[in-house]
């Protein structure tokens, strides 16, 4: 029983890491623009699918992953320039529909390019399971965990230590004031979109060997990432990371102990419960205290 719990925990943290990275992307974009980018999950899908395609075209895995990430960043920047910038200051509902439109568009493109089949990426360093007490751990999980820790640490250092990162956070508190002190809000927007597209793509590439990918893979991942950001208190980057891990673990426990079919329902019941008791997420008020 204890071994089983450990196994669920390991699986949950692995999946939760992906949610955390996607949620982090949500938080960054929300900070810079007050927009929730519903195309965030599509970045994850594009990263994975592009890497798979490049690998099939003969590129070595590290190069394929790198190029796929850069291409996704480019897509993120294009999305920002041609869909988000023209609608700056529009009501929440309008921006939600624009990013949903973008998500459908990107999904449509992916379907044309790669069809409706599931594709997979080979694991980075084999598939021989590692014994961890009574639980087994795929080497790929170690990649996911290790790189997530690295990426989160880097983003955190960027936000807290660099001028550019601090400027990005400043945007979320008061856009007009940020502009007054000379922060170029458009540059911040591009930075946020580029960064979260990159994070999404990496998350997709990391998880693809475990979960497979298809043109539709981004939908649920995007929603879970959004849930992570909301549970953590939207606009709080580290809250999103915690939210993602929590969500992953709960989902894995729920799937294992209750019913795997209700996995997604369990995740969203958790999100609803959090919101009913903490209407601004678990760490939502900390956002205000950061000033």
């Amino acid at each position: 029983m204890l071994d089983q719990l450990l196994q669920f925990l390991v699986t949950g943290i692995t999946v939760g890491s992906t949610y955390a990275l996607v949620g982090l992307g949500f938080a960054l974009i929300y900070n810079a623009s007050d927009v929730v980018n519903f195309a965030q999950g599509e970045f994850v899908m594009l990263g994975a699918m592009t890497a798979i395609a490049l690998l099939a075209a003969g590129l070595p895995l590290p190069l394929a992953a790198g190029v796929a990430t850069l291409l996704t960043v480019l897509v993120g920047l294009l999305l920002e320039r041609f869909a988000i910038e023209p609608a700056l200051g529009a009501p929440v509902v309008t921006t939600i529909i624009i990013t949903i439109g973008a998500a459908i568009f990107l999904r449509g493109v992916a379907m044309l390019l790669w069809g409706k089949d599931f594709h997979s990426l080979p694991a980075f360093s084999g598939t021989t399971p590692i014994q961890l007490g009574g639980a087994t751990l795929l080497p790929q999980s170690l990649w996911v965990l290790g790189l997530t820790v690295l990426l989160v640490t880097l983003v955190r250092a960027f936000l807290n230590r660099t001028l550019l990162g601090k400027a990005l956070l400043a945007c979320s508190f008061n856009r007009a004031a940020a502009q007054l002190v000379g922060i170029n809000v458009r540059v911040m927007l591009r930075l946020a979109y580029g960064l979260s597209a990159g994070l999404g793509a990496l998350a997709g590439i990391l998880i693809a060997p475990i979960t497979f990918s298809s043109y539709e893979a981004g939908v649920m991942l995007g929603l879970k990432g959004f849930s992570a950001a909301i549970v953590g208190g939207i606009g709080n980057p580290m809250g999103a990371v915690v939210g993602g891990l929590l969500l992953g673990v709960l989902e894995s426990l729920g799937a294992g102990l209750l019913s795997s079919g209700y996995k997604d329902a369990i995740a969203f019941v958790f999100v609803l419960m959090v919101l009913f008791f903490e209407p601004t997420g678990l760490f939502g008020h900390k956002v205000a205290e950061r000033v």
Binding site: I98, I100, G101, A102, A103, I104, F105, L106, G108, M111
Partner: peptide, 8 residues
């Protein structure tokens, strides 16, 4: 899908 998304 592509056209639907673009129109939206």
């Amino acid at each position: 899908m592509l056209i639907h998304g673009a129109l939206l």
